[in-house]
């Protein structure tokens, strides 16, 4: 019952977000709200088993969503800007030294892995190629492998991210 309720509330909120500005009950008109409730219940009943497949309700807490928003506006955005300046310089000069390295962030949940893999892809010259589900090891393609990182068997977070310790942020949000 709980997964259905959570999924229905999420679908309803998404519907409200898409139809904002349609009337004068706050921002919505009554027909839109009724339609949103109906659609939310139907979507919740149909896709709850898929949406909450991990059976883990940690992300249902609103505080974690606030934290996620802060994370994506703050550290992630700074890293994205730095990454893009870096890649732009490499596009112009053509000075690259590519390779695939191993990196173990020690995350266990699927959502944490997804967030970290996305963060890695959007930040400094790195791209997740493969994730080993049993051991949680990330195989990361780097545009510019440093000498130290190429020698080592397993790279550290500081080799991959420049300013912030992203795995610690992700752990705070998703685990």
């Amino acid at each position: 019952m709980k997964p259905v309720a959570v999924t229905a509330i999420f679908a309803f909120l998404a519907y409200l977000l898409l139809t904002a500005g349609s009337g004068d009950v706050l921002f919505w008109s009554w027909p839109e709200i009724v339609a949103g409730v109906l659609i939310g219940v139907v979507v919740g009943g149909l896709s709850a088993s898929w949406f909450c497949s991990s059976g883990n309700m940690r992300m249902a807490h609103p505080f974690r969503w606030v934290l996620l928003a802060i994370y994506s506006i703050g550290p992630l955005f700074v890293e994205i800007i730095r990454a893009n300046i870096d890649v732009a310089i490499r596009v112009i000069t053509g000075n690259i030294r590519p390779g695939i390295v191993k990196f173990n962030p020690g995350l266990s949940t699927d959502l944490g892995k997804l967030l970290l893999a996305n963060s890695i892809t959007l930040t400094p010259g790195t791209l997740t190629v493969e994730v080993d589900d049993t051991t949680g090891v990330f195989y990361v393609h780097m545009l510019n492998v440093s000498e130290i990182c190429g020698e080592k068997e397993m790279c550290d977070a500081s080799d991959i991210f420049a300013f912030f310790n992203m795995p610690a942020w992700i752990r705070r949000i998703a685990e």
Partner: peptide
């Protein structure tokens, strides 16, 4: 295969 200096994935 990627061109480059190291390829840890192929070792695995």
């Amino acid at each position: 295969k990627p061109e480059g200096v190291v390829d840890r994935l192929s070792e695995v």
